[in-house]
């Protein structure tokens, strides 16, 4: 794929209210942190250009409201995502516990064509705060069971690790997009729709 077509990567940030989704997005895109951000209502996104392996891509980062009852709006915003970023607050155990449901909800609503291999990245945010409630080890364990989801500990406040985390997010999103593009190019239409699973895939969880 040597085409120089503009690449747009859509990234969706999910997690409980107040874990720092809006702050992370702003830290990454604008390199700013403010105590004055408001709770998110509805949805918004910011874009940023990044260079990955000599290719310039545009990341479109979507930020939605965290309170549970607003999740039903998700479908309009999750559609077409290339990567999903799950965020929890390392000082708030409940935000860690709800990760499974955020992940499941995303897969249901976004219904990516290959859910087993859809890229997620986990961020443990507010790394600068004490006391910690969730250790890095515990978070990594959770990730291992989830297709070895990459894990980063970040601070939207200090900016620590934010750049690295989003670079990994961009790479995963790009890889995801390339894999779906390959899928499009390799198979005729009929196969594309029904047989997206790689031969090594464990189950037939798509096409529903």
């Amino acid at each position: 794929m040597a085409s120089r077509k503009k690449i747009l990567l859509k990234v969706v940030i999910l997690g409980e209210s107040s874990v720092g989704k809006t702050s992370l997005m702003n830290q990454y895109v604008n390199r700013k942190f403010s105590n004055q951000y408001k709770a998110t209502i509805g949805a918004d996104f910011l874009t940023k250009e990044v260079t990955i392996d000599d290719r310039t891509v545009t990341m479109q980062i979507w930020d939605t409201a965290g309170q549970e009852r607003f999740q039903s709006l998700g479908v309009a915003f999750y559609r077409g995502a290339d990567c999903c970023v799950l965020v929890f607050d390392v000082t708030a155990p409940s935000t860690f516990k709800s990760l499974d449901s955020w992940r499941d909800e995303f897969l249901i609503q976004a219904s990516p064509r290959d859910p087993e291999n859809f890229p997620f990245v986990l961020l443990g945010n507010k790394d600068d705060l004490e006391p910690r409630a969730i250790s890095a080890k515990r978070a990594q364990q959770w990730c291992q069971n989830k297709n070895n989801m990459p894990y980063f500990e970040t601070s939207a406040k200090s900016g620590s690790n934010v750049e690295q985390a989003f670079l990994a997010i961009a790479k995963n999103a790009l890889a995801q997009q390339n894999s779906t593009v390959d899928l499009y190019n390799e198979f005729p239409d009929q196969i594309k729709l029904t047989n997206t699973q790689k031969p090594s895939g464990s189950g037939d969880s798509c096409s529903c």
Partner: peptide, 12 residues
């Protein structure tokens, strides 16, 4: 918990 989170982000 949600109230506390939100008032701290209201019209500051």
């Amino acid at each position: 918990c949600q109230v506390i989170k939100d008032v701290n982000r209201t019209d500051r």
